[in-house]
């Protein structure tokens, strides 16, 4: 900037203006801008596309339904984000949701109060996360092997416990949770918003958050500085398990029963949302809003395709294409 800093305010404003304009133009041709904002750009693009092509898409009712449908995935993506930030991955996430749901259903059927059954489900999924973390750090086994094993193990456990049969959960508390509204949003949406806020503060405003990113970035350097990287990783997997527990409550509330069938698209979409949210899969770099918006975007995609009566068979294909594209753009991240 050639304008001296001690000029009159008017000319200083002009100077600022001069400086910011080319940077905006430069921003739009800079691939790293698109990489950082992939999920937002994608969401806006989809909203415009579906808003134009489907008369129903932009209605308040559809928006509310979409947010409700996105709540579970948002919560799961947050859990996955904490793990991916440590350069790990939690493949057992969707299986944990299923086991949490089964435990919730069976606990309730066995006479536990609905509240106690929910707490039990969250404790169980958190314990699974803790176990993942301990096996990965103390057992020195690669993360995807451990969580793949856990995926299979707890899927089997869910089937054994439930006998492969769904358990009906007739609870007014869960019914209210699923269908109640506070202001413009349903309760599950508020749960997701609360999860986003808490996770954001934990990641950006606590020592744990910095240590998490340091562990994911360069674990050896972090531990040379006295950060207990193993504990940080175990905490990340436990958080992931905790999120799976919250998601299992939302899921049981939504469908009214505990299904021992594992929902594989939840796992893939949780990883996809994290990738779309420009969280580095190599660890050390993360945000919470990014994956949350990524989860919204994936839900909008499925919702819009359904409204356009595109066969459900095309949805996994669309999700796959978008995720790989997002990962490609990610290479240009600064």
């Amino acid at each position: 900037m050639s304008v001296p800093a001690d000029n009159a305010p008017a000319s200083r404003q002009a100077g600022v203006h001069e400086e910011s304009r080319p940077s905006l133009a430069a921003l739009l041709i800079d691939p790293s801008f698109w990489a950082d904002w992939a999920s937002v750009v994608g969401l806006v693009g989809l909203v415009i596309l579906f808003g134009v092509t489907s008369p129903v898409f932009l209605t308040v009712a559809n928006m509310q339904a979409m947010l409700l449908a996105a709540a579970i995935l948002v919560v799961l993506s947050i859990g996955q984000t904490f793990v991916v930030a440590t350069s790990g991955i939690d493949l057992s996430l969707a299986a944990s949701v299923m086991l949490g749901a089964v435990i919730l259903g069976l606990g309730n059927a066995a006479g536990l109060g609905i509240f106690a059954a929910c707490v039990l489900a969250v404790l169980a999924t958190s314990a699974i996360g803790l176990m993942n973390g301990v096996l990965i750090t103390a057992g020195r086994i690669p993360d995807f092997v451990v969580t793949l094993g856990t995926l299979s193990g707890i899927t089997g456990l869910g089937l054994i416990l439930s006998g492969g049969e769904p358990t009906m959960v007739g609870s007014t508390f869960l019914l209210k949770l699923a269908s109640g509204y506070l202001g413009p949003f349903g309760y599950p949406v508020w749960v997701a918003i609360a999860a986003v806020l808490v996770a954001h503060v934990a990641l950006y405003h606590t020592r744990f958050g910095v240590h998490l990113l340091a562990t994911g970035g360069q674990a050896e350097s972090a531990s040379a500085l006295g950060i207990r990287t193993n504990r940080v990783k175990i905490a990340a997997y436990t958080i992931s398990g905790f999120c799976a527990g919250i998601a299992s409550i939302l899921l049981v509330a939504r469908i009214g029963s505990a299904e021992p069938q594992i929902n594989t698209s939840l796992l893939l979409n949780s990883v996809a949302a994290v990738v779309l949210g420009s969280v580095s899969l190599f660890g050390g770099r993360a945000s919470i809003l990014g994956p949350a918006i990524g989860a919204l975007m994936l839900t909008a995609l499925v919702n819009g395709l359904t409204l356009l009566s595109v066969s459900a068979f095309y949805q996994p294909l669309a999700v796959g294409v978008i995720v790989v594209l997002a990962a490609l753009i990610m290479r240009y991240q600064k």
Partner: peptide, 14 residues
Amino acid sequence: LIDELTVAQNLFLN
């Protein structure tokens, strides 16, 4: 240093 953290975050790490 941790590449992905800022200068200030690195100076105060742990």
